Amino acid sequence: MFDVQHWLVSLPPIAVYLLVAGVIGVESMGVPLPGEIVLVSSALLAATGVVEPEWVATAAATGAIIGDSVGYAVGRRGGRPLLARLGRRFPRHLGPAQLARAEQSFARYGVWAVFFGRFVALLRILAGPLAGALHVPYRRFLLANAAGGLVWAFGTTYLLFTVGRAAEHWLKDISWAGLVLAVLAGLASTWWLRRRAHRFETAEPTPDAEPVRAGSE
């Protein structure tokens, strides 16, 4: 992550914003990319004044919402065969076991899997295509998608920005310690959401759980 941040420093701010939106957007379409690493690195960069936190967060949220929506459209059109092809192309991230866990999450939690999926690497990649393949109603999907994207993007960015600025102020002579503190604070900030979201990855389907039905409102 530190190498990513050093590389971002060499880019003009507009390029950083576009990169954040692009990487997170493509990841949300179903392609495994380090979206969260790019967001965390950019948020820490904002704490140094190189880029603006509001634009980092806006870029991340925009990429997440649009990327998930594109993934939804592709998944709705391609269905299960598309997910199978993605699994063969990225077996470590989107193999049969990962797909099965993601489907269990949707069957048990419905659109809440989309919201909390933004905080889980597996569902962050699969939420859009899988929701489309399962024919989750788009309006419900978009609401959960937008809410999750905004909370994740602005929450992560501004918490890391705030802690990073405080660390820079009090730890000027040991900047590496401030950076480590900011990273640890960023991880701690999503602790509750990640614990809640972890249930989506490990949950076993219950007898009364009903899968999402196509066309249900």
Rank of each mutant, 00 (worst) to 15 (best):
F2H: 06
D3F: 04
D3M: 09
H6F: 15
H6N: 15
L8E: 12
P12H: 10
P13M: 12
A15H: 02
Y17H: 04
A21T: 03
V23C: 08
V23H: 06
I24W: 12
V26N: 04
S28G: 02
V31F: 00
P32Q: 05
P32S: 04
P32L: 07
P34T: 12
E36G: 06
I37E: 13
V38I: 15
S41A: 15
L44W: 01
L45V: 08
T48A: 14
G49N: 07
G49T: 02
W55Q: 01
W55T: 00
V56Y: 01
G63V: 06
G63W: 00
I66S: 09
D68Q: 02
Y72S: 01
R76V: 06
R77K: 08
G78D: 01
G79V: 11
R80S: 02
L83T: 00
R85V: 06
L86V: 02
L86M: 11
R88S: 13
R88Q: 09
R89T: 09
Q98H: 15
L99F: 13
A100W: 02
A100G: 08
A102M: 10
A107L: 03
Y109F: 15
Y109A: 13
Y109S: 14
G110T: 10
V111S: 13
V111F: 09
W112K: 10
V114E: 10
F116A: 13
G117W: 00
V120M: 14
A121W: 11
L122T: 00
L122D: 00
L123W: 01
L123P: 06
A127H: 00
G128D: 05
A131G: 14
L134T: 03
V136L: 15
P137T: 07
Y138W: 15
F141W: 05
A144L: 10
A146W: 00
A146R: 03
G149Q: 05
L150S: 08
W152P: 02
F154Q: 05
G155L: 03
G155Q: 02
T157A: 12
T162Q: 03
V163H: 00
R165V: 11
A166S: 10
A166H: 04
E168V: 09
L171K: 02
D173R: 04
S175R: 07
S175K: 08
L179A: 08
A182Y: 08
L184P: 00
A185V: 11
S189Y: 11
W191I: 01
W192P: 03
R195G: 13
R196Y: 03
H198Q: 08
R199N: 02
T202Y: 11
T202I: 14
A203S: 12
E204I: 05
P211K: 10
R213N: 01
A214Y: 13
S216R: 15
